[in-house]
Design a binder for these strands. Structure first.
Lengths: 192, 192
DNA sequence: TGTGTTTTGTAATAATCGATACAAAACTAC
DNA sequence: GTAGTTTTGTATCGATTATTACAAAACACA
C-alpha cells in the first residue's frame, strides 16, 4: 500500500560500485552517483544511507563476488599450481581488459583510505586474513597431494602469494605489456 | 629589489608531499595544504602553480628521493641477494614504522589516478620502467658473479621483483604483523 | 473511488571547493 | 629616503560539496 520503487536496488548498488571503483571515494560526488545510478539524491539517501555507507556496501558486494570467484576456482579438481596460475592470470587479464583500467577496488580503497578510516581498515584486514587462509588451505592441499614440498610453510607461501596478488593488480593498471606480466608468473610459481 | 619570501620553497614542497601522500589528491584540499605548509593561498599559487601542478611536483620529488635511496643500495659491494633483501626489508620497515601508515606515494597515486590522469599515467609508466631496469641490472650483476643462475631471464625476474615491491607496500599498510611480511621474503628470494 | 503510504522531483540548505583581486606590507637598489 | 618590485594578508569569487524539506505523484488496499 505504497508507491513502489522505480529502480532496482541491486542494480543501483552495482552502478555505485562501478563509479567508486573508477574514481575512488573522495573523487566520487553524490552527483556522479545519482547520474550513474539514474536516481535522485533523496532516493539514494533513503535507500542506501549516506555516501560513506553506500561506499562500504558497494565494497562489501565487490568482495563477495571476489570471494565467490576465488572459492570456485580453488575448489576445482585441478593441480594446485594450475589453479594458482589461473587465479593470477585471470587477475592480469581482467585488469588489462577493463577499458577503464580500474585495477582492484579493494587495493584502491586500501591505498586511499585504510590509514584514515577505521571501518575500511578493518574490512581490509579481514579481507587479507580471508584470502590468506584460502590460499594457505590451497597450499596445504598441494602438500597433501605431493605437488608442493611438504617442508615448506603453507602460511608463509600464502602471504607470499597474497603479496603477488596485490602487486599484480597495481601494476596491471599501468603496464599494458601482457608478456611482461605473464612472464613473471613463472617466477611466482617457481617459489612454491 | 623586491619583498623576499617568508617561507622555504623546498620545505613547503616537502610539507605538501606529506599531505598528498597521506590523503591523496582528491582527498586533499587547498586549505589542508595552506595549513600544513603555513602559507596562504596566493603564495601557494604564485610559487607552485595550481593544485595539480603542485601535486605532480611533489610526486616527482618523492620519486627522486626513492631513486636516490635505491641507487645507493644497489651500488653497494654486497651479495645481490643481500641487497634485494635489504630493499624489501626496508620497504616493509619504513611502511610499518610510519605512524600514519601512508604506504607508497607512487602506489597510492597509481591506484587513485593513473586511469584518469594521463600525466600521472605517464609518470607511473616511466617509474616502472626505471625501477625494472635498475632491478634487471642488479640481477645481471648477480648472474655475472654467479650468485644468480645464468639461464634465468633477468628482465623477467625484475618484473617479478617489481610486483613484489608494489605488493609489499600495499599490504604493509594494513598488516602490522612484521613476521608474516618478513617470512614472505624467503619465498621471494627463493625465486631468484 | 477514496485513503494511506512511500517514492519521486524540485529546490534549497550551509559549508567547502579551487582559485583570484586588491591593497597593504616588506624588502632591494639607488 | 624614495622608487620599484614582489610577497603577503584579507576577503571574495562562482561553483560544487553532501545532505535534506517539502510537496506532488504513484501505487496498494479498502
Amino acid at each position: 500500500m505504497a508507491r513502489p520503487k522505480k529502480f532496482d536496488e541491486a542494480a543501483g548498488l552495482q552502478k555505485a560500485m562501478d563509479v567508486f571503483w573508477k574514481k575512488g571515494y573522495a573523487g566520487t560526488s553524490i552527483s556522479d552517483l545519482t547520474t550513474s545510478m539514474e536516481i535522485n539524491a533523496p532516493s539514494l539517501y533513503a535507500t542506501y544511507g549516506d555516501k560513506h555507507k553506500l561506499f562500504v556496501t558497494a565494497l562489501q558486494a565487490y568482495l563477495q563476488s571476489q570471494y565467490e570467484w576465488m572459492r570456485q576456482a580453488v575448489s576445482e579438481q585441478k593441480p594446485v599450481r594450475e589453479i594458482i596460475r589461473y587465479l593470477l592470470a585471470t587477475l592480469i587479464d581482467s585488469t588489462l581488459e577493463d577499458p577503464e583500467r580500474r585495477g582492484c577496488f579493494m587495493v584502491n580503497t586500501i591505498t586511499e583510505m585504510a590509514n584514515q578510516d577505521t571501518q575500511v581498515f578493518r574490512i581490509a584486514a579481514d579481507n587479507e586474513n580471508h584470502i590468506r587462509s584460502v590460499l594457505a588451505e590451497l597450499i596445504r592441499k598441494g602438500q597433501a597431494s605431493g605437488e608442493v614440498a611438504a617442508d615448506k610453510d603453507a602460511d608463509m607461501l600464502a602471504s607470499f602469494l597474497y603479496i603477488n596478488f596485490m602487486g599484480v593488480r597495481v601494476i596491471a593498471a599501468t603496464n599494458s605489456d601482457k608478456k611482461h606480466l605473464y612472464s613473471a608468473l613463472d617466477a611466482i610459481l617457481s617459489a612454491i
